[in-house]
Amino acid sequence: MKLAYQDKKTPVHRLHPVCKIIWVLAVIAGSILINDPILLVLLFISTIPFVIIGKIVKEWGSFVKLTLWLSIFIAIINMLASQHGSHILYSSPMLPILGTINITLESIIFSIGMSIRLLATISAFAILTLTINPDDLLQTILLLKIPYRTVLTTSIAIRFIPCLFTDLDTLQSSLQTRGYQMAEGGFLTRIKRRAIIIPSLLSNSLERSIQSAEAMESRGFGSKGGKTFYNVIQTTRTDYFFIALSLSLFALFAIMWILRIGTYEYYPNITPIAITISYVSVALFLVLSAASPAIFSPLKKVIDLD
């Protein structure tokens, strides 16, 4: 399974990269400004339709699985470290240095809330990574008037990252098959022993970049005259609608934060959750925004022939 972009030709893939970037920023803003666990759950759920419509369930699942493990780790640390909360579920005997450790209901609920926050953010990022064509992203960045050479160089450098990992793996295997003990000794010794790979890794990368540069020059890179683009991503009505929705989402979260609607007190006692009209409206809004790529007729990336 590839955890990189694959063109699956879905409405999510066809959305303008700018739309997806603004949407991700809105989800991140939401997960920062809101700490009500129910709203955070809604926020996370709102990303799932994108996953289904974008046909990236398996790939997205791998991101989520990793986040869940990370969440469990964070939750355990939080439960052990945070001694706040009034409902003590377990109290450890006196431990040297640490003293008594109390595990409270509030710290458990807080950990769950934080995990959902992390899940929502990672989910949005995963959708972005899995559905944006790197070449489209390059063109989007060009809209910010960053020089083409800089953007292309960055894009190629990013494309080479998987090659770098493959190289690293092969070089490590080569060292192992020659009896080199990389995992021997303390932390610093291990780092030092692994450092032997760096010159070879750099050398391989340098050779690769020279070959790329040769190929680019041979295909007219840097020629005088204006640079044209084969694919021009057109902005459609759906894109505008989606941007408007994402910006409204932004505004909604900001208003909720200012009015303290989405804030939730975990300590010293968890606040009882009451389903109010604000929840219902937020939920509706999120579901609408999540379903929007499918609601509208599928967009077609049209080659601009003008």
């Binding site: 070449d135 190629i156 020629s223 044209t228 694919n231």
Partner: peptide
């Protein structure tokens, strides 16, 4: 020696560099 991410854009790379109309 390949620069882009998909076949069509890869082929277009040289034409874009020469500034040819679409």
């Amino acid at each position: 020696q390949l620069i882009a991410t998909d076949v069509e854009r890869e082929i277009a790379f040289g034409l874009e560099n020469l500034g040819l109309p679409k």
